[in-house]
Design a protein around this nucleic acid. Structure first.
Length: 575
RNA sequence: GCUCUGGUAGCUCAGCUGGAUAGAGCAACGGACUUCUAAUCCGUAGGUCACAGGUUCGAAUCCUGUCCAGAGCGCCA
């Protein structure tokens, strides 16, 4: 159970109520709560209400602050209150309250985080690679960011349904079918099936460019597939099976698990009905032979829901998917994680969904496209880097480091460690920056293992584990839970304050769909810990102080481990 | 042309729902391994937060315009 509300929550409640009663503000729509200070010398939390209330109360900010301080009775966890600058009200928490809070977290698996999602379902749609194409480095962001959001929401108590909306339907399958029959290499199909399928597709596509009859037969095969021709259907199913099998290898390496693999094709049967609903609502109309939804009055271009050849497209499938998800899961929200190019599409389809009355809270989380330093990469340019190759390289580089720094470690353990470090480094690179910024891929950056990187965090964790184990070996009979946790040294205080802010980091990361908030938090925490580690003794400290510090270390380890887990990054006790 | 993003230290990036002196990492320079794991720590140096206006007690953060870069804009997904 969560033992306490966080200090920020308690203090905000307190200042809000106290402000209201001191100044008789009942329904004032101003923020009267507190925020963390950005500099320790200003205390731990600050309230800026005195400045914002100047107009309303027609008094000088410092006067407001002074009146407030004079009238209010401090909560017991606040040691000191000060007025500073133009009218900031700064709060210093008492060390005793801080110590008590940290101790209470030791029995709380959620580390003080409120389970705000309890009883709510959220569908997260991410990764979504295309069948018959190998995953390349462009797929890593949706997968890794989507998975972190998935983990964050689960941690908040939401019932998460992670759905991998595979691109398993579309015009490319006509070319695939005939290409497969003509160009396939059985040997290659056995060793690297999806790569071979892609090669087949590219060959078929190239041939279609100046071969009319090839194009015609591709179209005919597609129609056969769509009409349920058993032979084409079986082939198509085989493509999907092979692809999923290979994707799963990657997902397994990345520690990503989906609850559902429902490709676009899953919703095929619903498409005609969606069109009917659109027509019944008077939303769809004919234009140049196609059926469209006119979104001009919402400032958007038209949205095609049925092509002039009678086929359906992306928007239609997405509407049907929402309809199905609402019926089956009644989600509180549906989160889509894709790259930036699809922003307009999602805006259009969200609006159409709303007009249609599908009654779903839809969120598009988009991230910047990954580029190479020279150019955008693309299959046609032939400059793609396969995801599997990236992961291999990461593990290989990590293994080199492990071998040189821990030559005595058994080989199996070295490999296991290299996997955790290599994959962690890759993930962290993506998760530690704002998803919406442009990303230029460089090996150096992707595999960074120093400074602000996953290995830095993993290293901090391993050092704590090591200290803790040494403590246990030296003092096997001491029950740490019987020893008091005291906060005395300044660095201990900084660490404790940081630990107490874990729940805020989780909430902010989840609510803003920004795992980098969590990554930032963990990096800060690890930095404070590293400084702590380097500057004060633990095992050599006098009794009492020693036990207290070990307990603080233990809490730090628990927080680091949990936080990294929320990012999908593994920890090891030894590095 | 229209729409959406971004522009912060030499490089890569945080910070952006307005708060006090703009932060990290890398690179550079100087220090710390007989001591709990140096993948670390301590320090020095590095900035017109693209530019110009505006809003306000207060702007890197909000608004407008300009410049630069990326993406999207009817039958791909």
């Amino acid at each position: 159970m969560r033992p306490f509300a966080t200090f920020e929550e308690r203090l905000s409640d307190w200042t809000t109520n106290a402000m209201k009663s001191v100044f008789g503000l009942e329904d004032a729509e101003v923020n009267l709560g507190v925020a963390p200070t950005n500099n320790e010398k200003f205390g731990d939390y600050q309230c800026n209400a005195a400045m914002t209330l100047t107009k309303l109360l027609k008094k000088a900010p410092r006067q407001i602050a002074q009146e407030f301080v004079d009238a209010a009775e401090l909560p017991e966890f606040v040691e000191k209150i000060e007025i500073a600058g133009p009218g900031f009200i700064n709060f210093h928490l008492s060390n005793a309250a801080l110590a008590e809070y940290i101790q209470s977290l030791e029995n709380d698996p959620s580390l003080g985080t409120a389970r705000v999602g309890e009883g709510k379902t959220v569908v997260i749609d991410y990764s979504g690679p295309n069948v018959a194409k190998p995953m390349h480095i462009g797929h890593i962001r949706s997968t890794v960011i989507g998975n972190a959001i998935d983990r964050l929401y689960r941690f908040l108590g939401y019932d998460v349904i992670a759905d991998n909306h595979l691109g398993d339907w579309g015009t490319q399958f006509g070319l695939m079918m005939i290409g497969y029959r003509e160009f396939r290499d059985e040997e290659a199909l056995k060793t690297a099936p999806v790569e071979e399928l892609e090669r087949v597709y590219v060959a078929s596509y190239n041939k279609s460019k100046d071969d009319v009859s090839w194009r015609e037969s591709a179209k005919a095969e597609l129609v056969k597939l769509q009409q349920g021709d058993p032979e084409n259907r079986a082939l198509w199913e085989q493509f999907i099976e092979l692809s999923i099998k290979e994707f799963d290898v990657i997902y397994d390496r990345l520690g990503v698990k989906f609850d559902l693999y429902r490709g676009e094709s899953f919703y095929n049967d619903r498409l005609p009905k969606i069109i009917e609903r659109l027509e019944a609502k008077g939303l769809a109309k004919e234009s140049e032979g196609a059926l469209i939804v006119d979104l001009e009055e919402y400032g958007m271009p038209i949205c095609i829901v049925r092509k002039s050849d009678g086929g359906y497209n992306y928007a239609t499938t997405d509407l049907a998917t929402v309809e199905a998800r609402v019926e089956e899961f009644a989600p509180e929200r549906v989160i889509y994680v894709t790259d930036e190019r699809q922003q307009l599409h999602f805006k259009q389809f969200f609006k159409t969904s709303e007009l249609l009355g599908l009654n779903a809270n839809l969120v598009h989380v988009w991230f910047g496209l990954m580029r190479l330093p020279e150019a955008t990469f693309s299959t046609r340019e032939g400059n793609v880097i396969k995801l599997a190759a990236l992961l291999d390289e990461a593990e290989a580089r990590a293994l080199e480091m492990v071998e040189s720094s821990s030559p005595d470690m058994p080989e199996e353990q070295q490999k296991d460690l290299a996997k955790a470090i290599g994959i962690g480094a890759i993930k962290y690179t993506d998760l530690s920056q704002n998803p919406q910024s442009l990303v230029t891929f460089t090996w150096e950056k992707a595999l960074n293992m120093e400074g602000n990187s996953a290995p830095y965090l993993q290293y901090a964790y391993a050092r704590i584990s090591s200290v803790h184990d040494k403590y246990r070996a030296q003092y096997p009979d001491t029950d740490l839970n019987e020893c008091s946790l005291n906060i005395e040294h300044e660095i201990e205080r900084r660490l404790a304050i940081k630990l107490s802010r874990f729940p805020a980091a989780v909430r902010a990361a989840a609510e803003n769909y920004r795992p980098n908030i969590m990554a930032d938090y963990l990096y800060d925490l690890a930095q404070i810990y590293s400084s702590f580690y380097q500057n004060v003794p633990f095992l050599k400290a006098p009794e009492g102080e020693r036990e207290s510090r070990i307990r603080l270390c233990r809490s730090t380890a628990a927080t680091l481990k949990q936080g990294l887990e929320l990012l999908g990054i593994e920890t090891r006790e030894r590095i």
